[in-house]
Amino acid sequence: MTDTEFKICLAVRRYHTLGRILAATGYKSFDDLQDQFPYNALDFDGFDPTAETVISLTRRAEEEYSAHKRSSSKELRDWITLFIAIYGAVTATIGLVVR
């Protein structure tokens, strides 16, 4: 999932209605949003989406969104762990030199 797709999915999960999603993402229509995905990722009830139409993610988009979110949090945990390890190594080296 690309960052653009992730941002659209995040807006869909947060705002739910098409008008608010379009305002948050900067796109002009439902078709513009849908064109950002290589597959049909957005779903709605009815035939013609209006500003008050509730938009949801398809099952495939929901799975990719969850996987992307998990991988992002794992990457953050990895960077934090690396920072703590480097800090510990530097602190231990300074402690040995000062001693």
Rank of each mutant, 00 (worst) to 15 (best):
M1F: 12
M1R: 02
M1P: 07
T2F: 10
E5P: 09
F6N: 08
C9R: 08
A11V: 02
V12E: 01
R13Q: 10
R13C: 09
Y15T: 02
Y15H: 15
H16P: 02
H16V: 15
H16M: 12
T17Y: 09
T17C: 07
T17M: 08
T17L: 05
L18N: 03
I21K: 00
I21A: 00
I21F: 01
I21R: 00
A24R: 08
A24S: 14
A24E: 14
T25F: 13
T25N: 05
T25E: 07
G26Y: 10
G26Q: 06
G26S: 04
Y27H: 15
F30E: 03
F30N: 05
F30T: 03
D31V: 10
D32M: 09
F37D: 05
P38H: 11
P38L: 10
Y39M: 06
N40A: 11
A41H: 04
A41F: 03
D43W: 08
F44E: 03
F44Y: 15
D45C: 10
D45Q: 14
G46K: 13
G46T: 12
G46Y: 13
F47I: 14
P49D: 05
P49A: 06
T50Q: 13
T50W: 03
T50M: 09
A51N: 14
A51Y: 09
E52K: 12
I55F: 09
I55M: 04
S56W: 01
S56P: 01
T58G: 12
T58P: 04
R59N: 05
R60C: 00
R60D: 00
R60F: 01
E62I: 00
E62P: 00
E62N: 06
E63K: 05
S66K: 11
A67W: 07
K69F: 08
R70T: 14
S72Q: 14
S72V: 09
S73M: 14
K74C: 05
K74S: 10
K74P: 00
E75P: 00
L76G: 03
L76Q: 12
R77T: 09
W79P: 01
W79I: 13
W79L: 15
I80G: 02
T81D: 08
L82P: 00
I84M: 13
I84H: 09
I84T: 13
I86Y: 01
I86M: 04
I86C: 00
Y87E: 04
G88W: 02
G88C: 08
G88H: 03
A89V: 11
V90L: 15
V90R: 04
T91V: 12
A92Y: 09
A92L: 15
T93M: 12
G95Y: 08
G95S: 14
L96F: 13
L96W: 12
V97N: 07
V97L: 15
V98Q: 13
R99I: 06
R99C: 02
